[in-house]
C-alpha cells in the first residue's frame, strides 16, 4: 500500500514538475526505481483526459457503460504509442543535430512525461471556451517537450527548440502519410470497442460547421409533396 501511495506521489511530483517546467526534474527522475511506470501512467492519464475532453464524440455516438470507459483507456494507450513514436523521431533528430545518442527507452520516457499538460484535457469539455483551452494545452505540451529535450540532450534552448520542431514536423509528416491506414485501424478499433460504426468524429465537430447528429432526416413533407 505504501509503495502504491509512494508511486502516486511520484506521479504527482512528475506531473507538477513538467507543468512548472522544473529543470531539476530530470535529475530526480533518473533516480526513480519505476521510471517507465511513472512515464506511462502520465501519458495514459493525458490520453484518457484528452478523450474525456472530447467525449462529446462518445456521447453523440451514444457510447455508454463499460464501452465508454474502455474507449477512454484505449485513447490513453494510443497516446502512449503515438508519443513513443514521437520520441523515436526526436531520438533520430537529436542524434543528427548533436551527435549524441540517447538510449531509446530514456527518450521515450522523457517524451511521455512531456504529455503532462494534457492531463488537464478534460477542460476541453467547457462550453465555448473548450477548443481554445485545448489549443493552449497543446502549446503548453510543446513547450514542455522543448524543456524535456533541452534536459535530455543537455543543449542550449535554441538547439533544443530545433530538435523539438523538426521531430514534431517529422511526426506530422508521418501522420499525414499514414492517415488512411491509421484511420481504417481506428475505425476498426472503434467498432470493436463501441459496437457502433463511426457517425461523427472529433474532426467533424471541431470543423465548426453545423451538423445534424441524427441518423434520420428531420425535414417534414410539404403539403404538395416533396420535402420541406
Amino acid at each position: 500500500m505504501e509503495d502504491f501511495l509512494g508511486f502516486l506521489n511520484d506521479v504527482g511530483h512528475a506531473i507538477w514538475g513538467v507543468w512548472t517546467l522544473d529543470t531539476s526534474l530530470g535529475q530526480w527522475f533518473v533516480t526513480l526505481p519505476y521510471q517507465t511506470a511513472v512515464a506511462v501512467t502520465v501519458a495514459v492519464l493525458a490520453g484518457a483526459s484528452t478523450l474525456l475532453g472530447n467525449s462529446v464524440v462518445l456521447f453523440l455516438n451514444r457510447v455508454r457503460g463499460w464501452r465508454f470507459g474502455v474507449s477512454l483507456l484505449m485513447n490513453g494507450v494510443s497516446m502512449v504509442v503515438l508519443y513513443a513514436v514521437q520520441a523515436l523521431a526526436i531520438d533520430v533528430v537529436g542524434y543528427l543535430v548533436t551527435g549524441n545518442r540517447v538510449q531509446a527507452d530514456i527518450a521515450v520516457k522523457a517524451v511521455l512525461l512531456a504529455t503532462a499538460p494534457l492531463i488537464l484535457g478534460f477542460f476541453e469539455l467547457i462550453p465555448y471556451l473548450g477548443p481554445g483551452i485545448a489549443r493552449i494545452l497543446q502549446a503548453w505540451g510543446l513547450v514542455a517537450l522543448w524543456a524535456v529535450v533541452a534536459t535530455l540532450y543537455a543543449v542550449d534552448r535554441w538547439t533544443a527548440l530545433l530538435i523539438t520542431l523538426v521531430g514534431w514536423a517529422l511526426m506530422q509528416l508521418l501522420s499525414w502519410a499514414l492517415a488512411r491506414p491509421m484511420s481504417a485501424v481506428g475505425r476498426w478499433i472503434w467498432r470493436l470497442v463501441t459496437g457502433r460504426p463511426t457517425m461523427l468524429t472529433a474532426g467533424d465537430l471541431l470543423a465548426g460547421h453545423q451538423f445534424t447528429p441524427v441518423e434520420f432526416d428531420f425535414e417534414l413533407p410539404r403539403a404538395g409533396g416533396g420535402k420541406a
Binding site: Y128, G130, P131, L205, L206, H209, Q210, T212, P213
Partner: peptide, 9 residues
C-alpha cells in the same frame, strides 16, 4: 447551446 459541438443536440 452556443457551442458548435454541443449545440446541435
Amino acid at each position: 447551446c452556443a457551442d458548435r459541438r454541443y449545440g446541435p443536440t
